[in-house]
């Protein structure tokens, strides 16, 4: 049984009166069959607050998911870039040789690098493609033109994070202790390798961005058509035919 809703003008219970869409405002109104005064359904504060809470909960989980995805993509790209710089330094191979070894199994001078490089390359490419699609789907409120530069800046920040942590946390702690902590990060050529890997990730993500935008538009169109179908279904059900 519906919850009682009394017309405040004449006292008729509007519980069984169907609400109708307002011709111009995006609200549903209930018109009293006795006096003609229109009213809107009043939601109990408990129900209203619980629905508001559910909406906020959904938004918070979406935010957590978005943040996790962004942090995951950035961390993965930065980690691969630093690991590549470390490999090229440790094994004394060039980035080009490493890339060739990954793509064509060409000997690069190191068996370890040869065996791991193809898998890393596949993961790296998949992650970069996924990042591009996410940029298209997950950030529809950003202008298309500003998404790649913003992502590039985020990639650079992620790559620099170990150095910033070293500069602002590790060095001061050791300075207080009266010790010197030497820099153990990439060398100048290592940074070039990091930049090259990040650039490759950025290019792949930017190239796949249009796919994400297309998917986002498809999802939007699907959502709109589903909404339209639900509205027309409700109208047909109310009109009895």
């Amino acid at each position: 049984m519906p919850i009682s809703h009394i017309c405040l003008n004449c006292g008729v219970d509007l519980a069984r009166v169907r609400s109708t869409p307002h011709p111009t405002l995006a609200i549903n109104a209930v018109v009293c069959p006795e006096c003609g005064v229109a009213a809107v359904r009043r939601k109990h504060p408990l129900i209203r607050d619980s629905r508001r809470f559910l909406r906020a909960r959904r938004a918070i989980w979406t935010l957590v998911g978005q943040f996790t995805l962004l942090a995951g993509f950035l961390t993965f790209a930065a980690a691969i870039a630093h690991a590549t710089a470390r490999w090229t330094y440790d094994e004394q191979v060039s980035l080009r040789a490493l890339a060739l070894a990954a793509v064509a199994a060409e000997p690069s001078g190191s068996r370890r690098v040869d065996s791991e490089a193809p898998y890393v390359l596949i993961f790296f490419a998949v992650a970069s493609v996924a990042a591009g699609i996410w940029l298209g789907i997950g950030l529809p409120h950003w202008r298309v033109i500003t998404r790649p530069p913003a992502y590039a800046a985020a990639l650079a920040l992620a790559a620099l994070t170990p150095v910033l942590a070293w500069a602002f946390f590790v060095v001061p702690v050791h300075a207080i202790a009266g010790r010197t902590y030497h820099y153990t990060g990439p060398t100048a050529s290592g940074w070039l390798t990091v930049a090259a890997v990040l650039l490759a990730s950025f290019v792949i993500s930017t190239l796949t961005l249009p796919i994400g935008i297309g998917m986002q538009r498809m999802l939007d169109a699907h959502r709109r058509s589903r909404r339209r179908r639900a509205i027309s279904k409700t109208r047909i059900a109310r009109s009895g035919g």
Binding site: A56, A59, I60, L63, Q66, F67, L70, G138, L139
Partner: peptide
């Protein structure tokens, strides 16, 4: 800032508080 940056507007309004 996080909400504005990462959430689409239809979710953003739920966190207007």
């Amino acid at each position: 800032w996080l909400v504005r940056t990462l959430l689409p507007p239809r979710h953003m309004s739920a966190l207007g508080f």
